[in-house]
Amino acid sequence: MSLLADAGHNLSDVLGLGAAWLAQHLAKRAPSARFTYGLRRSTILAALTNACILLLVTGAIVWEAVLRLFSHQAVEGNVVTWVALIGIAINGGTALLFLRGASSDMNIRGAFIHMAADAVMALAVVIAGLLISFTGYAIIDPIVSLIVSASIVLGTWSLLRGSLELALDAVPANIDSTLVEKTLLSLPGVGGLHHLHIWPMSTTETAMTVHLLHDTGSGISSDALIAEAGTVMRQKFGIAHPTFQVETGTSACDARAAGC
């Protein structure tokens, strides 16, 4: 059961890595008349897909492990141990390849978690194989599968929640929208702002739109104000695509209108 669970998990990893690679490839496509931002959001969808696949496969493993708790079957402990050791080497090495980019790109993070989870799964299978060889208790097999499955769910939950939030245009976790607002209000020539929106274009790029009330008595021109605000947003918050609507009087957009 442990080896079958590990094999199913590896299959989900192959699919997950394929989705991550495809998303990175699509994200590099130039914008078109129909997709004016390009296909950058595909990296968010890949991260979400990765999390869903991992949870679905883990759920199937849990179901089978529970059935095995009440229906014991003979297990070759030595075979389980040696096959799982090979799995540790392959999965652990692959996970290390994704380690560098895992902290800054959720798509890569999804791939990293997949491979790291596989390495942990394989380690647990090794332990299960050794215990079965020495004790002869086949029930160890499903018990270890349940323990590993629980740890995988805990590790994947943050990826699922984070990718789902990005898919729903939530402000990226590394950006404080309140601080963005305070920073804009502190710029020379800004007398107020409204309709501030910040959302992810991909797992690494962020866009923003805001209406700025221009204080015409400040001596700062509209062009200078936009240039300064854009520079600050890019350098301080990493917002690559800021868009500003500069107003000098009452906004033509009703502040109560949700579509503004």
Rank of each mutant, 00 (worst) to 15 (best):
M106G: 09
G136Y: 04
A117K: 10
I140C: 10
T135N: 08
M121Y: 05
G101W: 12
L123G: 12
L131C: 04
S151H: 11
F134V: 15
I132Y: 12
D105Q: 02
A116D: 01
A138K: 04
A124V: 10
I113W: 14
P142D: 09
D118I: 00
L97D: 08
G110I: 14
I113N: 12
I140Y: 15
A122W: 09
V144C: 09
S145D: 15
A117Q: 13
S133V: 05
D118H: 05
L130E: 13
A150N: 06
M121T: 01
S149M: 07
S151Q: 05
L131V: 15
A116Q: 04
M115E: 01
Y137S: 07
A128Y: 14
G136R: 11
A116M: 09
A122S: 12
F134Y: 10
L99T: 07
L130R: 07
S145C: 07
M115F: 02
I152R: 14
S145R: 15
V126R: 06
A150S: 03
A111P: 00
A102S: 14
A111W: 14
V125Q: 01
A119W: 02
G129D: 11
I152K: 03
I127C: 01
L99S: 12
H114S: 11
S103L: 08
A150M: 08
S151P: 04
D105G: 11
N107C: 13
I108Q: 01
S103K: 08
L97K: 01
S145F: 00
L99M: 07
A117V: 00
Y137A: 13
L146C: 02
A119K: 07
R100N: 08
V125N: 02
D105S: 09
H114Y: 04
V144R: 09
A138G: 14
T135A: 13
L131R: 05
G101L: 09
R100H: 13
M115H: 02
S104G: 03
A102V: 15
M106F: 12
A138C: 07
A150R: 03
M115Q: 07
F112P: 00
F134A: 03
M106I: 09
D118C: 03
R109W: 14
I139L: 10
T135F: 01
A122T: 03
A111L: 10
S103T: 05
G110N: 04
D118Q: 04
I132P: 01
D105V: 06
D118W: 03
F134R: 02
F98T: 04
F112L: 10
G136W: 08
V125S: 06
A150F: 09
I143M: 15
D141L: 04
V148C: 06
V144D: 14
I113M: 08
I147K: 14
V126W: 01
A116P: 00
M106P: 10
G101P: 01
M106A: 13
M121G: 08
M121Q: 07
I132G: 05
P142V: 15
A116E: 04
P142A: 06
